[in-house]
């Protein structure tokens, strides 16, 4: 113990109601899931004034993975590695790919799904992938004795620039994924969001098609510190399009998304991120074509 440096109190609620009450009693406390993001900040320790900590790791509901008839429900403190053990039959390929590429096994054991969704300053790859898979999140708002629970589409947690929109006393408790499997998906990423956010681009893409006709076209482009873009117009534009796409269609989609990318940021986007995004989209569409051709 060091004079002048406060040792934060750690609250370890064992049930959801304890958790709600702790978060009400200590409104400035930091929710602690895996801690990988918080602890990797340069100014993490030592600091004179550290907030109290509410550890989420003792709440059983948050550590559970449930499978219902319609959904796969994942607790917020489920680690990436734990989620990967669910298996290929249950977990969408895109999600599996994203989790595996996010970190090494040693770190995956510590990163939690909820933590990766709720990072305050940096957007990681998982929200983009969950968004492409149209996942929903359960948000508990702890407002004094009153608690409100609601399900939101995951993309509603962030604005276009990737800023986290939940309030301080809002807590993500579960993530819900439908069992409908995408017909094509890909996750392309370059760079490390933690160490080199200015050059990193992550693209998650899921396409649902029926007999070579595009039904849903979900793409999410993430720049760790400046963008979380879901081009809804392209989704509408692609609905009902026949696969494979023609060169002109590919060019149109790329142009349309890139226009949105360039117009959605107040600051100048580093050229490497612009160029990578363009190439990622183009490559994803070529891959979609290749798959649709091979299925014929």
């Amino acid at each position: 113990m060091y004079e002048g440096i406060r040792s934060p109190a750690v609250h370890m609620p064992k049930t959801m109601s304890d958790l709600v009450s702790a978060s009400t009693r200590f409104p400035n406390a930091t929710f602690w899931a895996g801690g990988t993001f918080i602890m990797s900040r340069h100014d993490y320790y030592p600091t004179r004034d550290s907030n109290d900590i509410i550890s989420l790791n003792e709440v059983p509901e948050l550590k559970r993975i449930n499978r219902t008839d319609r959904y796969l429900e994942i607790g917020a403190t489920v680690s990436f590695e734990q989620l990967l053990t669910v298996g290929k039959q249950v977990l969408p390929g895109l999600l599996q790919m994203t989790l595996e590429r996010s970190a090494t096994k040693i770190v995956r054991k510590q990163i939690t799904v909820g933590g990766a969704i709720c990072t305050p300053q940096i957007r990681l790859a998982l929200p983009g992938t969950l968004s492409a898979l149209q996942a929903e999140v359960e948000v508990k708002s702890c407002m004094g004795p009153k608690t409100e629970t609601r399900w939101l589409e995951i993309n509603r947690l962030y604005d276009k620039k990737g800023a986290f929109l939940l309030k301080k006393n809002d807590l993500v408790t579960r993530i819900r994924l439908g069992f409908e499997r995408e017909d094509f998906s890909c996750h392309i990423a370059a760079g490390d969001p933690m160490t080199n956010p200015g050059e990193t681009v992550m693209l998650s893409f899921a396409c649902f098609h029926n007999q070579s006709v595009v039904d849903r076209f979900r793409m999410c482009i993430t720049f760790p510190t400046s963008m979380f873009l879901i081009p809804h117009e392209v989704d509408m534009m692609m609905h009902g399009t026949m696969l494979p796409l023609t060169t002109q269609q590919i060019e149109r989609v790329v142009r349309s998304i890139m226009e949105e990318v360039l117009s959605s940021s107040d600051h100048e986007i580093p050229p490497i991120q612009v160029e990578r995004s363009r190439r990622f989209i183009e490559s994803a569409l070529h891959e979609l074509n290749a798959q649709s051709l091979s299925e014929r």
Binding site: Y2, E3, G4, I5, Y45, P46, T47, R48
Partner: peptide
């Protein structure tokens, strides 16, 4: 000072 952490904070 007396320990590395207080020195860093100070």
């Amino acid at each position: 000072g007396p320990d590395a952490e207080t020195v860093e904070v100070k």
